Amino acid sequence: MKVIFAGTPDFAAAALKAMALAGFEIPLVLTQPDRPKGRGMQLQASPVKQAALALGLRVVQPEKLRNNAEALQMLKDAQADVMVVAAYGLILPQDVLDAPKHGCLNIHASLLPRWRGAAPIQRAIEAGDAETGVCIMQMDIGLDTGNVVSEHRYAIKPTDTANEVHDALMNLGAQAVVADLQLLAREGRLKSTVQPEDGVTYAQKLSKEEAKINWNEPAETLARKIRAFNPVPAAWTEYQGKPMKIWRAEVVNQSGMAGEVLACGSDGLTVACGENALNITELQPAGSKRMTAAAFAAGHALEKGMSLL
């Protein structure tokens, strides 16, 4: 069975590698154009491009697919049975969706219709969801509105960061899409279920502004945000007029004025919130590397009673 693949980040590269290892013929890989990255702003290939080249696969990098006759012809010429899409980053118009014999399957990191959109992993953690997962979805022209082919659940642990859930769902998605492709190869079709109209939520794109800590919020809310925004865009507060990132924190049953430093020492940096307090255990002052709160306390004059508001 011939399978076109379209994706860009690590989440997608894992699926591409799994498909190749399972023996599927992959005549074409689509990924985003090389982008400048790092301090030197050198052009860097996406993880999917790097994986595809290592596997000896043909890679194309169109800037867009809409009204792109050349790209559409390449897709048709591949004569693929199906296209698998994972975090590609480009909108697929109807003529592209229709190009493969069995259309396009998407690996989506949520339990649809919960968390359609750009940041499903982060929004699930931020909202306090007990579980999330991966859906293999038959793509249509809507935003994550297609029929669900298979669903694979993951219980979110109380300490999970977005990075940890990402890695778990990345592996889960790679296994799931291979299993569904093998089923399609055996049976010539995939059963699917229409998404229910109830329970639709949208995972809006993350912003640096919303990642700023508002100490008037409950500690439980802030603890979820810190986990949800780790590693990007990273929750932060101001310290000495500069942003200080907060990487890990836990809720403690203490109280004080919102933003008030309750303790700063070997056990962490404890700050009062609108309800209860946060004990910060890992942080990153501006211009420094990530460090434990204990290491920070040893080198900074942050005393009990000071305010981070």
Rank of each mutant, 00 (worst) to 15 (best):
V251C: 13
G274C: 06
E197Q: 14
A124Q: 08
A130L: 08
D77Q: 15
S288D: 13
V251M: 08
L30T: 03
T8C: 14
G287L: 06
A6T: 07
K289N: 13
A6H: 08
V165G: 13
D10H: 08
A234Q: 02
T8V: 13
Q61T: 11
A249W: 06
V59R: 01
L72M: 06
T132C: 12
V177R: 06
L57R: 11
P285N: 06
H152S: 10
A176S: 12
N67S: 12
I141R: 03
V148W: 04
E25T: 08
Q284M: 11
D10N: 15
K101H: 02
S255H: 05
R153Q: 09
F229W: 06
R116G: 04
R290A: 01
E70T: 15
G265E: 10
A294Q: 07
L309M: 11
D267S: 15
F11D: 15
P100T: 04
M19C: 11
I91H: 04
L111V: 01
I107F: 01
R114F: 08
M83V: 00
W236P: 10
L172W: 12
K76W: 11
T237N: 10
G142M: 09
R248T: 09
G40A: 13
V60I: 12
T201M: 03
A15K: 01
A20H: 00
R123V: 05
Q79A: 14
E25H: 07
A86F: 01
A99W: 01
A119C: 07
I107E: 01
N216I: 00
Q79T: 04
V200L: 11
P93L: 07
E220S: 15
D98H: 11
M291G: 14
E260R: 05
V82K: 00
K2R: 07
A127T: 02
A286K: 13
T292V: 05
A179M: 08
P196S: 00
D129Q: 12
N230E: 05
A286D: 15
R248D: 15
A249T: 09
L55E: 07
V232G: 13
A87T: 11
L72N: 09
A298T: 03
G7N: 13
R35N: 10
A228F: 04
M170H: 15
T281A: 08
A211N: 02
G146V: 05
G56E: 06
P36C: 10
L16E: 04
A87D: 13
R189G: 00
L105K: 01
E197S: 15
K242G: 00
N147A: 12
G103N: 08
R39N: 14
K304R: 10
Q42K: 15
A119D: 06
G274H: 05
P285V: 06
I213N: 11
V149T: 00
V148K: 05
G173M: 05
N276D: 12
I226P: 15
L143D: 07
F229T: 00
A54E: 12
K37C: 08
G38Y: 04
V232W: 05
Q195S: 02
G133L: 04
V261E: 02
P231H: 03
F11K: 13
G117M: 11
C264R: 02
